[in-house]
């Protein structure tokens, strides 16, 4: 009863109103975007009635299909490759004796998080231009996959490393004590226990790749339009609620992945 409550931030004056304003600013635009995807009129600013027609036209839209296909090819490949790299990196950073340059390695892995994305984008573009110019090499969509893989690695790395650091090292000692060779100990103990970390890492990498705009915009060649680029191109023309429908679809995919990743992490953490 006599518990002092003055330090509880929820009781500070203005806390509630500030919180409500923040939430409104964050989510009202998204909500409006979603609502107008159901607008039966052809303007995104004037409400006329309810229809699912724009979703239908989005699903029939071949440009949207092509963009979705590109996006999936790039995201799925980049997710798989970056998650594997991140897993190996995380093991190399946590399950070995401290080695010279371990701090530098950590920096290098996480650099994409700190470098402004536009810089990475310009650098990547110049790099591919250089390769194309001097060696005559162009990997087509492979350029985008490569670029996405690189910037996805730190996102996949973080949850995997966190999981490895939380894991009880004694379990690996116990496995070795029970005649498991290092490979068997990894395969039977470390890897199964690492799965939730790998799943969240992969989900994060997928989302980051899925909605990347800046790097993709600069690196993408002709015929390599991804969903974010497609939406960008559409809004430069007279907009119809079809773009809202497409955006809503993307949003749903993102929410699905983040939720799955969150749920897996929480279930395994118990």
């Amino acid at each position: 009863m006599a518990e002092p409550r003055a330090m509880d931030i929820k009781d500070q004056p203005g806390f509630r109103s500030i919180a409500v304003i923040c939430l409104l600013v964050l989510y009202v635009p998204v909500l409006i975007l979603m609502i107008f995807s159901l607008n039966s009129g052809s303007l995104v600013t004037h409400w006329e009635g309810v229809t699912l027609g724009w979703y239908g036209s989005a699903f029939r839209n071949e440009e949207f299909h092509a963009a979705a296909k590109n996006t999936l090819i790039i995201s799925v490949t980049a997710t798989i490759v970056s998650t594997i790299c991140a897993t190996l990196a995380a093991i190399g950073m946590t399950r070995v004796k401290p080695w010279r340059g371990i701090a530098a390695a950590f920096m290098v892995i996480n650099l994409p998080l700190m470098v402004p994305e536009i810089i990475t984008a310009v650098a990547t573009l110049s790099f591919f231009a250089l390769i194309a110019g001097t060696l005559g090499l162009n990997f087509g969509i492979g350029n985008l996959i490569l670029a996405h893989t690189v910037f996805c690695i730190p996102f996949a790395y973080m949850p995997i490393r966190a999981r490895l650091e939380d894991m009880d090292l004694t379990l690996e000692y116990a496995a070795a004590d029970l005649y498991a060779t290092p490979w068997n100990a990894f395969r039977r103990i470390t890897l199964p226990l690492l799965v939730p970390g790998i799943m969240s890492g992969a989900a994060l990498a997928f989302i980051v790749s899925f909605d990347d705009f800046t790097i993709t915009q600069l690196v993408a060649g002709p015929g390599q339009t991804t969903l974010p680029l497609y939406i960008w191109n559409q809004i430069r023309r007279p907009m119809t609620p079809e773009i809202n429908a497409i955006s809503t679809i993307l949003l749903m995919v993102s929410i699905l992945f983040v939720s799955v990743s969150f749920l897996i992490a929480r279930r395994r953490a118990k």
Partner: peptide, 26 residues
Amino acid sequence: VNTVFQSYALFPHMTVAQNIGFGLEM
């Protein structure tokens, strides 16, 4: 030589029987 750890270090993703059989399996 086998060890009983202070924290027991049982494998959380395995059943009781799988834990006991692990050494023999290896």
